[in-house]
């Protein structure tokens, strides 16, 4: 089964929940996908041994200025304005290109060929029996989505994902945009991590809207639960959203985090909390 961890607001503790959940259920056969490709950080805690690196590219257009008659069809079809056709020149803006291939398909002169441009890398390895895959978007790149697609494709091919007994844990990016949707897509369940602050609540509500659209079951983890106010609780109650776990605002947890140590490694009592959360999720899933 596939469980994604998302949040809306950044910095609420997605990676903390994802890593500690993965480490608490070793008997399930865990696959861990760090899909927060703009700043992947789960490896800091899981310390995987990377065994394979795959370069990920998107095809960008290259114009044969000899064949081109500047008809402008390519610029017209490009939804992302990656092409500019001037009276005697065509300009390509590779960073705006989403690699859909529409321009080369439609060019009446056959003047467009495609050229691969690397946008990032996917790294595959292991960490204490956990199959680990992460994406690293190259600095300055604007499109995480194709990279996330490759992470999930690699994970799917490795088989664990289709085995109902094993668990694929997905650490999603923050926010509610394309990259989040790509990361969550296909999940059996999504854990939304939030904090009891006005910002946490605001972005939680946005994330809930996304999950309803995607028709993915979800529940909430309230991190730093001993601070802030009760509005997240009230919201969850009013909307019948299950609260899966509360992690207190604890100096010890913060210290462990700052040292790159998973909570369950040092505070064993949390293993039981994460295992219970997993059982709860299992109960919530349609059978």
């Amino acid at each position: 089964m596939m469980i994604s961890i998302a949040s809306g607001k950044g910095g609420t503790g997605k990676t903390t929940v994802a890593v500690n959940l993965a480490l608490s259920i070793p008997e399930r056969g865990v696959q861990f996908l760090d899909c927060d490709v703009e700043e992947p950080n789960a490896s800091i805690f899981l310390k995987p041994r990377i065994e394979e690196t795959v370069s990920v590219s998107i095809p960008v257009p290259r114009i044969d200025q000899e064949k081109c008659d500047f008809c402008g069809e390519c610029a017209k079809i490009c939804a992302y304005h990656a092409l500019a056709v001037l009276p005697k020149k065509v300009l390509v803006f590779p960073h705006l290109c989403h690699g859909c291939g529409g321009c080369s398909l439609l060019c009446p002169q056959g003047a467009i060929t495609e050229q691969d441009r690397e946008i990032g890398r996917v790294e595959i390895g292991h960490s204490n029996g956990i199959e680990f895959i992460q994406g690293k978007l190259n600095v300055g790149e604007a499109m995480p989505t194709p990279l996330i697609r490759v992470i999930k494709e690699k994970a799917r091919r490795r088989g664990r994902w289709t085995n109902p007994a094993s668990v694929t844990v997905i650490d999603a990016p923050p926010g509610t945009s394309c990259s989040v949707i790509e990361a969550i897509k296909g999940s059996d369940f999504c854990i939304l991590v939030t904090e009891p602050t006005p910002f946490g609540l605001n972005d939680l509500i946005l994330a809930v809207e996304v999950l309803k659209k995607l028709q993915v079951s979800f529940g909430v983890v309230i991190n730093r639960s001993s601070m802030g106010d009760y509005r997240v609780d009230s919201y969850c109650q009013e909307n019948h959203i299950p609260i899966l776990l509360r992690i207190p605002f604890d100096r010890e947890i913060a210290t462990l985090y700052s040292q790159g140590i998973p909570i369950v490694q040092e505070k064993k009592e949390y293993i039981e909390d994460f295992r219970q959360m997993m059982d709860y999720i299992q109960e919530l899933l349609p059978t």
């Binding site: 992302y80 500019a84 001037l86 300009l91 604007a142």
Partner: peptide
């Protein structure tokens, strides 16, 4: 436009 506004505007004035 979410992106590429400058490209589109540039083409327009060209």
């Amino acid at each position: 436009a979410s992106g590429g506004a400058g490209v589109q505007s540039g083409q327009l004035v060209a």
